[in-house]
Structure formats: C-alpha cells, structure tokens
C-alpha cells in the first residue's frame, strides 16, 4: 500500500496502457486465429486463478490449496444450471456458490495457522469431490454430466471480463484500508487483532472474494470440457498451479502473478504440443530453477533490472 498519492501522470500512463491492452484484447477475435483465441482464454483462466489466489494468500501468507474446490463448484454449477439459465447468470451463480463455500470453510478454519490451514484446504477439495461422487451415484444415478457447449468467442469474452474484474478488484484491495488490514494480518496477526483489526472478518471476506472469481471461471470454462465428473472438476492440479504460478511470478507486485501465470500457461502450451512425453519433466526443471535462482519471482528479476538501469530510488519497495 502506498500512502503518498502517485503522480497523476503515472496514473494516466498506467491507465492508458491498460485501456490500450483492453481494446486490443477486445477486438482480437476479429483478426486473430481461433487457436489464438482459445489459447488466450486458457491463459486468462490461469491469470484469474493465480491473481485470485494471491488476493488472499499473498498478503496474509495463508497458503490456500482450495482453488480446485472453488473451481469445481463453479464447474458443477455450470453442469447443473447450464441448460436452464442464461450464461451470465450461470457464471454469476458459479461465483456466488464458491463465495458461499469459502465463507463457510473460512469461518470454520481460518483460525488454523500455517501448514494446518493448507492441509485443511487441501482436504476440502477431496471432501467435496467425494461428496459430489456420492451424490451423483446415489441420488442422480450418474457419474458424469454433459455441459452445454458455448462457442469459443463467447468463452473468450467472458474470460476477458472476469480477468478485467479480477485485476480491478486486486488493485483496489491493494490500495485500500482493507488491503492494509490483510497485510497487517500477514505480518503480525496477534498485533493486528490488538490494534483493532477484526482479523476473522477480514480473512474470511478476502478468502470469499478470491473464491468468487475462481468459481465464476469454473462456470465458464466448464463449457469447454463438454463432459465432466467429480475427478475432472475437482482436479488437484488447479490447487497447485495458482500457487506455483504466483511463486514463479513473484507476489510483491500486482503484475507478478499476472506475469507468472501468463509465462507458465504459455510454456505449458508450448511444451505439451512440442514435447508431449517430456513436458512435465521440463516443467519441473523450470520450476526448480526458478525457485532456486528467482526467490522473488519474475517480478523480483524485473525490479533487479530496474534498479541497475535507473537506480534504486525509482523502484517501488
């Protein structure tokens, strides 16, 4: 959180760059190939997952592994309501369902600290997966469901809107009183409580806000999979990817998780198409190298360059 208002000029530059990028992306389906559109929608998905994760886990240091639970909740919302309701409503319900799940899970478990919280969130994915499996087999008599198909361009635009909303929310939180409270909790939770921060309320609401975007993303991206079952919807990969991407990008800056997710998602695409048998191996090596040599992620690397080129005083701490 910066307390001195930034120069209006800087804000203007940031604003105009953001606007240009947004216009570029909004008009992209008009001239780009359908492959690019599909790839970008996938990258947007990873950015939303990573950025939402970092809204809560970045400042507080509570490592959540619940992303897959929230994504899966959104996916199932889409599978259940997709045929009955219009798409924007389904996406909204997906987000709200995850929001409520996070409120409940958060209220029950955010008193847990450190590794215990991570373990619980990990367990949450498994719990809901098996609950869903039991429900489907015993009550609906099926195991999987078909999801209504939506064309690629629509998926792309919905993801673009979700991405813009996530970035806006993350930015607003970072610069707000609420963001300061979150940070104080991460720095020294006990002192924060005794300084008047309602730690439970702040943690639970941040957890729920971050879950909203993940759930909404699940609801729209489910239309891509066409067929889902609990194993597909509640895949652990989606719990770990956001964490890895955020670490890879660096969590100190807003652009860290965005950059981490973009590079990671693109890398995954390249590796999986060029080296289908070795891509996990390459992936692992890249991850190990980045953890060893980029402790502050890509964002840290960029700040390092900035320091060398312009001198330390132009770099935000």
């Amino acid at each position: 959180m910066k307390h001195k208002p930034r120069l209006p000029q800087g804000l203007l530059t940031t604003g105009s760059i953001t606007l240009t990028v947004l216009v570029l992306f909004a008009t992209l389906p008009g001239y780009a190939s359908i492959y690019t559109v599909i790839l970008l929608a996938a990258i947007f998905m990873y950015i939303v997952l990573t950025l939402s994760w970092s809204i809560f886990s970045g400042p507080t240091g509570y490592i959540s592994l619940a992303s897959a639970a929230f994504l899966g909740t959104g996916i199932y919302t889409s599978a259940i309501f997709g045929k009955m309701l219009p798409l924007p409503v389904v996406v909204g319900i997906g987000g709200l369902a995850s929001f409520c799940l996070a409120l409940l899970a958060g209220a029950l478990t955010l008193r847990l600290k450190g590794i215990y919280f991570s373990m619980f969130t990990f367990g949450l994915v498994e719990l809901i997966k098996h609950l869903m499996l039991w429900f489907e087999i015993n009550l609906t008599g099926t195991r999987g469901r078909f999801v209504i198909v939506v064309d690629h361009i629509t998926v792309y635009y919905v993801m673009l809107v979700l991405l813009a909303l996530t970035i806006l929310t993350a930015y607003a939180i970072r610069r707000s009183k609420f963001g300061l409270a979150l940070q104080s909790i991460g720095e020294q939770e006990e002192a924060a409580a005794h300084t008047g921060v309602n730690v439970t309320l702040v943690k639970v609401s941040a957890f729920a806000i971050s879950a909203f975007f993940v759930g909404a993303t699940g609801a729209i991206m489910a239309t891509r999979w066409t067929y889902i079952d609990p194993y597909i919807a509640f895949n652990y990969l989606f719990s770990f990817m956001p964490v890895l991407m955020a670490i890879f990008g660096g969590m100190g800056q807003l652009y860290g998780p965005i950059m981490g997710a973009t590079v990671f998602a693109y890398l995954e695409e390249i590796l999986i198409t060029r080296f289908p048998y070795f891509y996990m191996l390459f992936f692992g090596i890249i991850l190990i190298v980045s953890v060893l040599y980029l402790p502050n992620g890509l964002a840290g690397l960029i700040q390092g360059w900035q320091k060398r080129v312009w001198g330390a005083r132009y770099v935000h701490p």
Binding site: E187, Q188, A191, A192
Partner: peptide, 14 residues
Amino acid sequence: KVFPNMSVLANVMV
C-alpha cells in the same frame, strides 16, 4: 510485535 515489512508510518496508521 511490529508489522516488520510495513513502513513505520503504515504501522501507526493501522
């Protein structure tokens, strides 16, 4: 129990 990575001013502002 200060907030170590926050500025001194931000600590008080909390």
